[in-house]
Simulated scan of single mutants.
Amino acid sequence: MARVSQAHLDARRRQILDGARRCFTRNGFHATSMQDVFQETGLSSGAVYRYFRGKDELITAVAEEAFEWMREAFESATRDAPLRPLDEVVAGVLSRALDEQARRAGAERPGAFAELIVQVWSETLRSEALAVTLNTGYERMRETWGGVVVTYQEAGLLRADVPTDHVVRTLMALAQGFIVQRALFKDADSEMLRNGLRALMTATDGDRPPRA
């Protein structure tokens, strides 16, 4: 019997993951059955179970890949960021990250990849393995954004008397909130985020109403 090549094994695993991701994106983790995955991939149950023992393993694999894709997209985008207006950087990073990952995931509608990310976040509450993966990716993204924030602080474009990590966590909270809005309300777009950030970041004491 001819030996199956590693390239063939990798391609088959990729086929299963891509099919499972499409199912999860359409119907959610818990409304998707293994039978749905078999039908989506066109593979037998035996072929799928050779790679994944069940739906929980598929969820973990899809979630881990989604984390990695988002981390790569953020790191790639922030490398191009130095000293462009920060509102453009943040909005651009999110737009590029979500649009590129939606394309890679084969998402069928706007906001679908954001929905998958929100599902993944919720799944970490019941999966210790996923929680570890999320925390690892989160720490790496904090380091990436920390370098960007320090660059802006040293250039006098951000206040240097605020701890760098406080700024980083706030920027990441904005990013996470934007992803939730994109998933839940569908109408959130990068231009809206860019305009809102610009207004907040250019506010001066004279713009603020007097205290009651």
Rank of each mutant, 00 (worst) to 15 (best):
52 F>T: 03
193 L>M: 07
66 A>T: 15
113 F>H: 05
199 A>S: 03
42 G>K: 05
132 V>C: 04
65 E>Y: 01
9 L>E: 13
33 S>R: 14
32 T>Y: 12
4 V>H: 00
205 D>M: 04
47 A>I: 09
4 V>Q: 12
105 A>K: 04
208 R>H: 04
107 A>W: 02
81 A>T: 06
194 R>V: 00
24 F>D: 06
46 G>A: 15
41 T>G: 02
180 V>S: 03
48 V>F: 03
79 R>L: 15
67 F>P: 00
89 V>I: 15
79 R>G: 13
23 C>E: 04
84 R>F: 07
126 R>A: 10
6 Q>D: 13
122 S>W: 14
92 G>H: 06
177 G>T: 01
80 D>W: 07
36 D>C: 09
140 R>C: 01
72 E>T: 14
81 A>G: 06
14 R>T: 09
110 P>Y: 01
100 E>P: 00
152 Y>L: 09
29 F>C: 00
65 E>T: 13
50 R>P: 02
2 A>Q: 12
36 D>A: 14
50 R>T: 13
199 A>R: 06
156 G>C: 11
47 A>D: 12
8 H>F: 10
149 V>S: 03
143 E>A: 12
5 S>D: 06
11 A>N: 14
142 R>G: 07
151 T>S: 14
183 A>W: 00
15 Q>T: 11
73 A>L: 13
170 T>A: 12
95 S>C: 11
137 G>D: 06
46 G>P: 09
6 Q>T: 08
48 V>E: 05
1 M>N: 08
184 L>Y: 07
143 E>V: 15
4 V>F: 05
197 L>P: 00
136 T>C: 06
153 Q>I: 11
89 V>S: 05
147 G>W: 03
17 L>C: 00
55 K>Y: 07
42 G>V: 13
30 H>Y: 15
75 E>A: 08
70 M>K: 09
177 G>A: 00
32 T>G: 07
166 H>L: 11
86 L>H: 00
160 A>R: 04
16 I>Q: 03
7 A>K: 13
115 E>W: 15
53 R>S: 15
100 E>F: 11
1 M>D: 03
41 T>E: 07
61 A>T: 08
41 T>F: 05
125 L>H: 13
90 V>Q: 01
115 E>H: 15
6 Q>H: 06
166 H>A: 12
189 D>V: 00
65 E>I: 11
64 E>A: 10
43 L>H: 07
94 L>S: 10
207 D>S: 11
83 L>C: 12
7 A>Q: 15
60 T>V: 08
91 A>Q: 10
196 G>K: 01
122 S>M: 14
178 F>E: 00
28 G>Y: 06
